[in-house]
C-alpha cells in the first residue's frame, strides 16, 4: 500500500473540469458551424481550420518558449477562440489575415495577461477588432450566403443587412424603401444573409445557447439582458418613428448580435461573477450596441460594445456583491 494522502476537506470533488467546460462550449458551436459550412462552403471550413490551428500554435509557442511553463493547448480554450474568431470574420477573408488575427487574439488578447482566466478582454473579439481596423476593406466585404459552394475566390459579395439599413438611411431613403432590399425574417433566422461566417443563423446560435444553458456552462442573465435591452431600446425608437427606425426584430436577428449575446458576452473569464452584475453587464452591452448601430459610424457595434463592457467588469465585480446570508434580517 502506498502512503495515505492528507488533504484539507472536502474530500470529494465535482467531476467538472476546465477542459470539460471548454469542450462543452466547442460542442455547442457545432450547429452554427454547420450552417456556415452550408452557406459558405469550403471557404468556411478552411477558414475555421486555419483559425483554430493558428490559435493553438500561437498559444503553444508562447507557453513553451516565452513563458516556459506548462503547455495547456489542449484544454479547449484556444479552440474556442479560434472558432469564434473565424465566426467573426467574412468567410472569404484571406487566410494569412486569419493567421494574423489569431496571433493577435491569443498573443495580445490572452497570453499577454498571463493566459487563460487572466485576460480582461475577450480574445476573439480583440482579434476581430484588430482585423477590422487593420483591413477594413476585407473585413466588410461579406460573401453572400447562398448554398454550399466549393468556390474559394470570385464569390458574390454584398453588404450585410445592417450595412444596407445604415447606408439607406444615410442616403435619405425611408424604411419602407429599404426593407425590400434586406432579407426577410425567416431568412435572417436561418442564416440566409450576408455577414461574418458564424453570425448568420440566429436559430443555430440559439440552439447552441440552449445547449450551454442546459449543460450549465452559461446562465440566462447576460443573453437575456443583452437581447432584451436591444429589443426595448430599438423598440422605443421604432414606436416613436417607424418611418425612420427599423422594427426591433431586424435588429435582433441581423448582424452579430445573437453571436455576441450568446457566445462572446457570456465568456466566463471576461464577464462579471454575480447574477446582478451579469444583468448590468448585459444591459450595458445592449445600450452600447444600439447607440453604435444608430448613431455611430459603423453599421455594427456588438464587438466594440462587448469589449467596452469587458473593461467595466472588474468595476462591476467590485461594486456588485452577491446577496450575503444574514445581511437583511427578514424574520417571519
Amino acid at each position: 500500500m502506498s502512503l495515505l494522502t492528507v488533504s484539507g476537506s472536502p474530500h470529494v470533488h465535482d467531476s467538472q473540469s476546465v477542459s470539460k467546460i471548454m469542450y462543452g462550449v466547442v460542442y455547442s458551436l457545432i450547429p452554427a458551424m454547420l450552417v456556415s459550412f452550408y452557406f459558405f462552403g469550403l471557404a468556411a471550413i478552411l477558414l475555421t481550420l486555419t483559425a483554430v490551428i493558428s490559435c493553438m500554435a500561437v498559444e503553444y509557442v508562447i507557453q513553451k518558449y516565452l513563458m516556459k511553463g506548462p503547455v495547456t493547448v489542449f484544454d479547449g480554450s484556444a479552440i474556442i477562440t479560434g472558432i469564434l474568431l473565424a465566426f467573426n470574420v467574412p468567410a472569404n477573408l484571406p487566410l494569412w489575415m486569419v493567421v494574423v488575427g489569431s496571433a493577435v487574439a491569443i498573443g495580445m488578447g490572452k497570453m499577454t495577461f498571463g493566459g487563460l482566466g487572466k485576460n480582461p478582454f475577450n480574445p476573439a473579439l480583440v482579434g476581430r477588432v484588430f482585423l477590422m481596423i487593420s483591413f477594413p476593406v476585407h473585413m466588410t466585404n461579406y460573401p453572400k450566403a447562398t448554398a454550399f459552394s466549393t468556390q474559394l475566390t470570385d464569390i458574390v459579395t454584398g453588404p450585410t443587412p445592417l450595412a444596407i439599413m445604415k447606408e439607406g438611411l444615410q442616403k435619405g431613403e425611408s424604411v419602407a424603401e429599404i426593407i425590400p432590399q434586406i432579407p426577410e425574417y425567416a431568412q435572417l433566422l436561418l442564416g440566409q444573409m450576408g455577414g461574418s461566417m458564424g453570425e448568420i443563423s440566429a436559430i443555430a446560435i440559439l440552439l447552441g445557447g440552449l445547449f450551454m444553458a442546459y449543460k450549465k456552462l452559461i446562465t440566462w442573465h447576460i443573453p437575456v439582458a443583452y437581447l432584451g435591452t436591444v429589443l426595448v431600446f430599438t423598440g422605443i425608437f421604432w414606436l416613436i418613428d417607424p418611418g425612420y427606425h427599423f422594427n426591433p426584430l431586424y435588429h435582433l436577428l441581423s448582424g452579430g448580435l445573437m453571436l455576441g449575446a450568446v457566445y462572446m458576452a457570456t465568456d466566463m473569464v471576461t464577464s462579471p461573477m454575480s447574477p446582478l452584475g451579469m444583468l448590468i453587464f448585459g444591459i450595458g452591452c445592449g445600450v452600447l450596441t444600439v447607440v453604435i448601430r444608430m448613431f455611430g459610424a459603423y453599421p455594427e457595434g456588438v464587438a466594440f460594445s462587448i469589449l467596452i463592457m469587458n473593461a467595466f467588469v472588474p468595476l462591476i465585480n467590485r461594486g456588485i456583491k452577491p446577496k450575503r446570508f444574514g445581511e437583511e434580517v427578514k424574520n417571519g
Binding site: 467546460i21 487572466k118 454575480s274 452577491p322
Partner: peptide, 16 residues
C-alpha cells in the same frame, strides 16, 4: 489550474 472566473464558487456559497 488557472481560475476561469466561472463564478461557480460564488453561486454555491451558502453564505453568499
Amino acid at each position: 489550474q488557472n481560475c476561469i472566473r466561472c463564478a461557480r464558487c460564488l453561486n454555491v456559497c451558502p453564505m453568499g
